[in-house]
Design a protein around this nucleic acid. Structure first.
Lengths: 356, 356
DNA sequence: CTGTTAGCGCGTTCAA
DNA sequence: TTGAACGCGCTAACAG
């Protein structure tokens, strides 16, 4: 592949001139500029981003670490992030971790080596010493959707507590008293928030929190189905379930089908994540919807701002000021997957006692 | 960030020795090796992949160009590719093109500048002069799922013709005579193959091909819904539809709901792509299933082989021999979304006349 | 307005 | 077994 040297030679000028023509970084006579451009075209020359990065210390590359790009939530996130960043001339290295801390660490190491300009992470929840490296090396880190216990950077997330609270409240209003929740492990900040919103809603309405109705599981559909079946096979089967992501929702639906139970007749359901098929199900699914594009826009905005801050204020903690955490709202979308419990319910909750 | 120089200085050795310790590329005394390793650990040193790439001419980075990572088919593909490549020490730059030829071109240019080691592309179908650049620069190109008219590299795809044929044949066997197809534009090789399989199946069973029953559309759900409604609103409404990807399937389902029609009573359906929710629908969906992991494995395998070939045989066309095209099978998964046509059908097709 | 020179951080000859 | 010197392709000082 042709180098800048080849171009310079063919055009009969110096490398510097070629460089300045390309980057428009110093005045060049129209005549010589044209000669250079011709040479470039003739040789099909393309500047090496590698060599350029080596002495500018900028790669125009952002790393994105997510658990599972197959999950529509994350693929939507990656897409949103990609779209925003490509507009700004950045591109993306996508890393799928399967929530495996080791894989996560491997990728962090690699991204460090690649000298990415920044990182957007939906972490597994495990402690990652390498996170600190990034901030030590002045490479901004933004956490999205989830965050580790000690975030080394701004956190962009939805209000998981409120979402869990609203979902549960909705079921309580329908008269349900035995409400289960199917969730990811509470090692994830999202699961923690949603479960505590669920618990708080129960308590606020005078209902006991039955720990055995809180079923947590790993990332696979199969594991979630097992947990869902466990719920359905109880003698005191719950009359309603909150499923905290789309995998859990699918798992519950599959379990219902296996046990020949009907939604909402036998079980009412409030899910999370409003995918295109959610409204096409029989019955259409009541879900908590969050704006994935808002989430990705906020993440990208925050990251780019952090990159800006970095170049200016050399003092480490200054960046924290210009990149605050962001908490986005989530909304309840009411459809037909909720109904009153079939079995005689307890006393209807008085409306007056409902919190706002 | 610490450089190899810093490490050498701290360890009291030369840069060369540090380099050889890191890459294990020449014998080093255990003692000095340890000293070097200590220095590396102490400084938290990480070799710069940039500098390394500059003189090895290898980036260990692969570009993946897809239309829409939000589409479960492509996200599955990206995931499979990512998994395989990370095992081999490569990582991925993901590029979302939205099937916009200009965006596609922009990304190709960028990947060229980044000097990726190879490229996996699901192209938009438009002519891309830059494809030729890659092969000219000896950077292997693999086309997956789709291919342009003049592929500049091996093509990995499923047998779209057979898939379209089987889907249609299945509906014919149920006694349908007015069968429509909802498809992407025939600029895509996949759409062309599926539609011609559909047409051929009709002809092979003595049915006429009604061009107006072939509805083609762009990538968006909205556009597909419009086309689906157009089909449903005909006076001679088709009794069955083949939907050639998951967007088309969702579009048809949404249109059915809007028109208050039932599947399979009013319309039988064979879709493409077997996503987790397909079997949970009411009714469960009959679909053409393809193995995304087979597809991505074949793509990665072929690409890595091409990279190998490249380093060995310098002669351009040699690579074509060690990286043949791959055509993978697709299978029909029979579920409940097909039934005999409600209106009095034409004469039942005689089984004996069915092709194998 | 243009050319010369010196690195960026690393791998890799060639000597020792 | 080790070190010194050169170059990968480019940008950025400094001269002219």
């Amino acid at each position: 592949m042709a180098t800048i040297q080849d171009v310079a030679q063919l055009a009969g000028v110096s490398k510097a001139t070629v460089s300045h023509v390309i980057n428009d970084t110093r005045p060049v006579t129209p005549a010589t500029r044209q000669v250079v451009l011709d040479a470039i075209a003739q040789l099909n020359y393309r500047p090496s981003a590698i060599a350029r990065s080596l002495n500018t210390n900028v790669t125009h590359t952002i790393g994105v670490l997510v658990a599972d790009i197959t999950n529509p939530f994350f693929s939507g996130l990656v897409r949103g992030v990609e779209r925003q960043l490509s507009l700004q001339g950045y591109n993306l290295i996508v890393c799928n971790t399967d929530e495996d801390p080791e894989q996560e660490a491997r990728y962090l190491d690699l991204l460090l080596a690649k000298r990415v300009d920044g990182l957007i992470v939906a972490p597994s929840g495990a402690a990652q010493p390498l996170f600190q490296q990034f901030s030590a090396y002045n490479t901004p880190l933004v956490f999205v959707d989830r965050h580790p216990d000690k975030p080394y950077g701004p956190v962009i997330e939805i209000d998981n507590f409120a979402a869990g609270y609203e979902a549960t409240k909705h079921l309580i209003r329908w008269g349900h008293r035995r409400i289960a929740i199917l969730s990811r492990n509470p090692t994830l900040s999202t699961a923690r928030g949603r479960i505590s919103g669920y618990s708080k809603a129960l308590q606020a309405h005078g209902l006991d929190v039955d720990e055995t109705l809180i079923q947590v599981t790993g990332i696979t559909l199969e594991a979630a189905v097992t947990n869902a079946l466990r719920l359905l096979d109880r003698p005191d089967r719950p009359t309603a379930v909150v499923t905290t992501n789309h995998i859990m929702t699918l798992a519950l639906l599959r379990a219902l089908r296996e046990r020949n139970l009907d939604c909402p007749t036998d079980i009412s359901l409030v899910g999370f994540d409003d995918h295109p098929w959610a409204s096409l199900f029989t019955p259409p699914l009541t879900v908590i919807r969050m704006s994935i594009s808002d989430l990705s826009n906020a993440a990208v905005g925050t990251l780019l701002r952090a990159i800006e801050c970095r170049t200016q204020g050399q003092g480490g903690d200054l960046s924290a000021e210009c990149t605050p955490d962001v908490v986005l709202p989530a909304e309840l979308v009411v459809r037909a997957s909720c109904a009153p419990p079939a079995s005689p319910a307890g006393p209807t909750v008085r409306r007056a006692s409902l919190p706002t």
